[in-house]
Amino acid sequence: MSCEDTWDLASSVGATATMAAAARAIATRADGGLIDDPFAEPLVRAVGIDLLTRLATGELPPGDLVEQVWIDVAKVRTKFYDEFFLDATNAGITQAVILASGLDSRAYRLPWPAGTVVYELDQPEVVEFKTRALAELGAAPTADRRVAAADLRDDWPAALRTAGFDPARPTAWSAEGLLGYLPPESQDRLLDTITELSAPGSRVATENRPNPRPGDEDKTKERLNRISDSWRAHSFDTDMAKLRYFGERNEAAPYLTDRGWAINGISIRDLFAANDLPPLKGDDLRMGDMRYVSGALARNGGGRDSAAREAASRRLRD
């Protein structure tokens, strides 16, 4: 994906949201006790990619098209972010922001505390599509859902402001499955902006991927190319390797820590063990080092952070 790329939910990086929803649909059908996303399957059907629809509905068994490890990752990742938001809002945080929300249905399926405002931020075509598709299903949000229609490459804080976002109130932020699709400098800018817009006591959740060892990325590209080739045989033409940004970048956890966040995390390997899923083996072992991380912004803030937040507040008010 290039910085000038455009997409919808059936093409380019936008299709990854539909792939993730298909994995959640498969996981929900296989293990409803660990993950329950009843909207994943109908949303995939609404997008209309034939292969992903047949996988999501169970018409086509995953087999080699969707390796079991990716289904298991969908289980633990969904559960991690579900619990992050519920823990944050049950602790008194009343606004949540889901960045690059795609086909995320948490605003419709989680038991949000009364008074919670959930902001979904994504490109206008994406949020409009999902809003319409869920309305046609008769689904109603379980929180005060507000759409912030903007591309992350544009002035997305202004879109949040228009939707009613208040930087003076603590916020629960998620950047789920997002950072690897951003150039390194864009990742840093996103994390900086989250920090600037966060009042003390805000919380954040994302993934921390270790920088690659020699040969790691070649193996990853080979694997992604195999997946893309198998999907092309079913008339779904996408190039997974080209959608990701490879190379060195700042790791998210220490980067956030340096900006005043108290960050904790758990590896995929440990999440699999905690949820009684089969351990990773072979080429999947390196995946186990990726950590799902979350944390809170120090309540007493800091000089640099306080000044940044005040500047962000002024920008949002102007």
Rank of each mutant, 00 (worst) to 15 (best):
A56H: 12
A172M: 11
P113D: 14
P38V: 07
D50L: 05
T28Y: 13
R244E: 00
T171I: 04
D144G: 02
P212L: 04
A159I: 05
T195F: 00
I194V: 15
A135Q: 14
N208W: 00
R132S: 12
A135D: 12
L243T: 07
R169H: 03
A100E: 01
T116E: 04
E176M: 04
A163T: 08
A25S: 10
Y292G: 10
R223L: 04
A88M: 11
T94K: 14
A149K: 08
G265E: 13
A21S: 12
A312F: 01
N275I: 02
E125R: 11
L86N: 13
A143W: 08
A88V: 09
V47Q: 06
G180I: 07
D218I: 05
A158Y: 00
D36P: 01
V69N: 01
Y119L: 06
F85V: 09
P214L: 02
R286V: 04
V44C: 08
N211W: 12
N211D: 09
P113K: 09
F272N: 01
T94F: 03
E41N: 01
G33Y: 02
R29D: 14
A30T: 10
E128P: 02
A139F: 03
S101Y: 01
A20Y: 08
S294N: 14
A241E: 14
L121C: 13
A139Q: 10
G282H: 01
V66I: 15
T57W: 02
T6P: 04
D218Y: 00
R132Y: 01
T195Q: 07
D72K: 09
S235D: 15
E59G: 05
E67N: 04
N211A: 01
F129K: 13
T18E: 03
K242A: 15
L243V: 05
A139G: 04
V293L: 07
Q123R: 15
R146V: 03
P111Y: 13
L316K: 10
P254M: 01
R232M: 07
C3V: 04
D72I: 03
P200I: 07
G247D: 12
T257G: 11
R146A: 06
A252H: 08
S101P: 02
A21F: 02
D31C: 10
Y119I: 08
L190T: 05
L152E: 11
R269Y: 11
G32S: 13
E248N: 03
T18Y: 10
L137Y: 01
E251R: 07
T78A: 15
R226H: 13
A199K: 09
A139L: 03
W70F: 15
S202D: 05
V293Y: 00
P141N: 15
L52I: 11
E196Q: 14
